[in-house]
Design a binder for these strands. Structure first.
Length: 255
DNA sequence: GCGACAG
DNA sequence: ATCTTGTCGC
């Protein structure tokens, strides 16, 4: 799938100043919908006859002249893999906290362009609304494709947990509220959740995931969808499969 | 000067 | 993200 013609302006292309990138992010946030606007019933995510859920992740070939990105997208219905694609693209923008979508967004869109299936929902490795300008990777790509999306990050970029998240039991979720490091419009509103997908039985601890709406989903529905994606690991299965696939492609390119 | 942050 | 073996515990 490709971005709709009228959304080409959201594509995270290189050659922009930091100010221009931040301005585009404010534009992206203004176009994002942090409320449910889904073509399916979120309660059916993970069901054999439920929606098509895509997992997205990348691996990098740092030891190349232009650094190369391997972007992978794995689409599932229930626990069955319907389609799996990848793209290998040059990385043209360095990683800067807050501007991750500009480094990874382009290569990810290259992978989506290879997709024959149209997913109903996509899970990204990174933040959505939990972002300084409410326009993290999941939001940026979701808005660019006008595709319902969710951000699943392994660490918290900004925002404040409603209570301590150090020792949550499996399945527990704690609201993350917008704080002073974020757009004023997010202040005190629930921009996402810390979600303990897995936990050890003993005293060892696993950090929670930080789930936030990307586009066309509310914070509550975003966590519900992640919880329904299942899997036996910390990361939801779609994302974990995309991660493994990107690594597989990367290793096959070793020299 | 301090703060300090996805992948 | 990436560089990387063994090791602790169920």
């Amino acid at each position: 799938m490709e971005p709709p013609p009228d959304r080409e302006r959201f594509r995270p292309t290189p050659g922009r100043s930091r100010e221009e990138m931040e301005a585009l992010q404010r534009d992206i946030a203004a176009s994002a919908r942090f409320a449910d606007d889904l073509p399916f019933d979120p309660a059916t995510v993970g069901d054999p006859d439920g929606p098509l859920v895509a997992g997205v992740d990348q691996a990098f070939l740092t030891d190349r002249d232009p650094e190369m990105a391997v972007s992978a997208v794995v689409v599932r219905r229930g626990d069955e893999v319907i389609e799996r694609v990848h793209a290998i693209s040059p990385v043209e923008i360095p990683y800067v906290p807050g501007l991750l979508a500009f480094r990874e967004g382009g290569p990810i869109l290259d992978a989506f362009a290879e997709l024959e299936t149209d997913p109903d929902l996509a899970l990204f490795d990174g933040s959505g609304r939990i972002h300084f300008r409410e326009a993290g990777l999941a939001t940026h790509v979701g808005v660019a494709l006008d595709l319902p999306s969710v951000g699943v990050a392994k660490s918290l970029l900004c925002g404040t947990p409603a209570r301590d998240t150090a020792a949550l039991a499996a399945g527990e979720r704690v609201p993350i509220r917008g704080d002073d490091r974020m757009s004023a419009s997010a202040t005190d509103t629930v921009v996402g959740y810390a979600y303990q997908s897995r936990q050890y039985p003993d005293s060892r601890r696993i950090n929670p995931l930080y789930v936030s709406p990307g586009h066309r989903v509310s914070a509550e529905t975003a966590v519900d969808c992640v919880a329904r994606c299942g899997g036996d690991y910390k990361l939801p299965e779609p994302t974990r499969l995309a991660d493994a696939y990107a690594d597989e492609v990367k290793r096959s390119l070793a020299e």
